[in-house]
């Protein structure tokens, strides 16, 4: 009784604004619910798997799956590599300015994507600062956000910049659990820095690295904010992700179709996390 009293406010709020929407989104995806039906619920029909079938016949949706996969497959290793590099550098026995460095690398994580987009749009212009810098080393930079080839790499660069701080902090915590005696023993045995990294640090960091990969895949599969504020999914749908596709369909009033698309994404996220958690557990 008392326990339920403590749980009640959460249960009510969570039920109304998370659980019921979650279930009704699932139900909705098997109907033909459109925004024009909000006032006339009796006009809604059950259509079985029609929305899902239509989804996989829609070239724009299939393309958005590729775009999302591109972001995940290139973005995750890149983000993890940069974050691990930063964490190892910060953990290499330096003491001065350590907090300052950590603060600096983490700052992009806490800043609003809308504000950041304003400055990044400018940085990525044809005549912008990035291409000016590239020009100094003889590279003729592209018009990043208006190129179907270069818009995605630009999104990935932004993604790495915005997420490396989080992963760096997680990896730092992982590195600090590795006993220094191990490293010193290997050093006395004559192992070089690279050898020590690959045969001590990496194996012991395995659970942390996998945890980081799971987190990133949950976030990166939902790839949405960068294209939303930077390119509106363009040019020519080159940065239109699955989340963005669903959001656009919501905007057109195709509520059932949008729900179906979002459930495909949910299933993908759940499956991928499950596979990764299994890998994490089996090798522990």
């Amino acid at each position: 009784m008392i326990a339920w009293a403590f749980a009640l406010p959460f249960v009510l709020l969570f039920g109304a604004f998370t659980f019921i929407p979650l279930v009704s989104s699932f139900g909705m995806s098997f109907t033909d619910f459109h925004s024009s039906d909000v006032q006339t619920p009796f006009a809604i029909d059950f259509v079985g798997l029609d929305q899902y079938v239509k989804l996989f016949q829609t070239p724009q949706f299939l393309r958005s799956m590729w775009t999302t996969a591109y972001y995940v497959i290139v973005g995750i290793p890149l983000t993890m590599g940069v974050a691990l590099g930063l964490a190892v550098a910060l953990n290499s026995g330096i003491n001065r300015f350590r907090t300052a460095f950590r603060t600096g690398f983490y700052t992009p994580v806490v800043t609003s994507i809308v504000a950041v987009a304003v400055v990044w749009r400018f940085i990525l212009q044809q005549e912008g600062p990035l291409n000016t810098v590239l020009g100094l080393v003889g590279i003729d930079g592209p018009d990043w956000l208006n190129s179907t080839t270069w818009a995605m790499p630009a999104m990935i660069i932004m993604g790495v910049w915005r997420n490396m701080g989080t992963l760096m902090v997680i990896f730092l915590a992982g590195l600090q659990t590795i006993p220094t005696e191990l490293d010193e023993a290997a050093r006395t045995d004559g192992a070089g820095p690279l050898k020590r990294f690959t045969s001590i640090t990496l194996p012991l960091m395995r659970p942390t690295l996998l945890f980081g990969a799971v987190l990133l895949s949950v976030w990166y599969l939902q790839f949405f904010e960068e294209p939303f504020v930077m390119t509106q999914g363009g040019p020519l749908d080159a940065t239109l992700s699955v989340s963005y596709f669903a959001y656009k369909q919501f905007g057109f009033g195709n509520y059932a179709f949008a729900s179906a698309a979002s459930y495909v994404l949910f299933v993908a996220i759940a499956l991928l996390s499950m596979v990764m958690f299994r890998a994490l557990r089996s090798k522990k």
Binding site: S25, M28, F224
Partner: peptide, 9 residues
């Protein structure tokens, strides 16, 4: 759960 799932309802 991705944000878009609960967005419409």
């Amino acid at each position: 759960v991705p944000g878009v799932v609960t967005f419409v309802p």
